[in-house]
Design a protein around this nucleic acid. Structure first.
Lengths: 200, 200
DNA sequence: CGCAATCTTGCACGGACTGCACTCTTGGGC
DNA sequence: GCCCAAGAGTGCAGTCCGTGCAAGATTGCG
């Protein structure tokens, strides 16, 4: 699983850099923290920082680049006879549970920090965008449609992103007192019903 | 309407900077163009550039900051008895027609450039995000729901963004040979139906 | 015509990020 | 255990982005 010492060390510094970046920015704000600060707290040279993250912002978010393919893979792994929406709901149920269950409450902290820095929000959305593109391909494969030609795959992928972002937004607004998977589920209920106006 | 000479000149340089940025980046790529280059082509000093745009990326996109409130305003202006989805469809019909009708084909060029530079895509999505937040407030006001508490307003706003982005994506993919408003409309048809799997 | 507000510009600076070259560590063959 | 090749960490120098400040030019208005 975790192969050599080399791999483990590399992962460790990556995590250390992310933690340092996230915590420092939470304390001092994005502009109050320099790359040098982050590198110092993680005990590496400033130059090394850029061997791990291409950008200060990326270090703060600390997203695993492999994550962008994850949703698409899990979607593709669902039983073939399943409705696309049903399959997607299942995938996001898993994912949201995983996010909520991460140790140290990384996601809550991430979301708080992101909420205060529009730039990071843009970066996060860009990451979602990567997932969505991969997901659109998977949806196209499953439904026999074509990305770019038919509306369905791109739209469904984008809507999935919308569902997740909405859920995250409400999760933050509720100060993380509500289970994230439930919020995701509620979003899909509204979507599957065709977005009817709520009765007042 | 257009008041003094001052105002007109200011707008002119703003447009000049945007055009210069967009065209240069289309020619040489984002990294092949510096702020100095852009300022030079627009005939202003490099320092002045930053009086108009906070960022090189923003100059390339050249979005009017007032646009972020536009969708919400038009939505609020729709007849009160209208279904939220219906109202939103009408707003996006107007907007997409306006975008497609802009002189010089600015939007096609923008989209081509954005397509080649993920960073710009992130910035563009951030701009959409601004619109969506304002829109969510408007939806909340209309439906008597609360942003952050209820799913509906944030979700509907996010879905509207998804519809528009999907339409823009297909517009680009079709090399702008299909009318944008039709693509927007198709997206909403699928959404209003609850995202049923397309029959193969 | 002349003053006040506003724009433009140059200067200097800090921070992000990159290419290059050098050193140090790790992993594997012997 | 020894050695060497690959990979990782580091320092240095340099480019470009973006900002505060203060001086110079332009416009609007009385």
């Amino acid at each position: 699983m975790t192969s050599g010492l080399r791999e483990r060390k590399k992962l460790a510094t990556r995590v250390a850099l992310h933690q340092a970046a996230l915590q420092l920015v939470a304390e001092r704000g994005l502009d109050g923290v320099s790359v040098d600060d982050i590198a110092a707290r993680a005990d590496v040279s400033p130059r090394t920082f850029f061997n791990y993250f291409p950008t200060k912002d990326d270090a703060v978010l600390g997203l695993d680049p492999a994550d962008s393919a994850l949703a698409a893979e899990r979607f593709a792994a669902r039983p073939a006879e399943e409705d696309p929406v049903t399959a997607l709901r299942a995938v996001q149920a898993e994912q949201s549970a995983a996010m909520a269950g991460e140790p140290q409450g990384v996601w809550p902290l991430r979301l708080r920090v992101v909420d205060e820095h529009p730039v990071l929000l843009a970066r996060l959305h860009a990451a979602f965008g990567g997932s969505e593109r991969a997901l659109a391909d998977a949806v196209a494969a499953r439904t026999g449609t074509r990305v770019g030609v038919d509306a369905y795959p791109t739209l469904l992928a984008a809507v999935a992103g919308a569902a997740m972002r909405t859920a995250l937004h409400r999760w933050l607004a509720a100060d993380f007192t509500v289970p994230l998977p439930r919020l995701v589920d509620e979003a899909w209920d509204v979507l599957a019903a065709g977005l009817p106006a709520p009765r007042r």
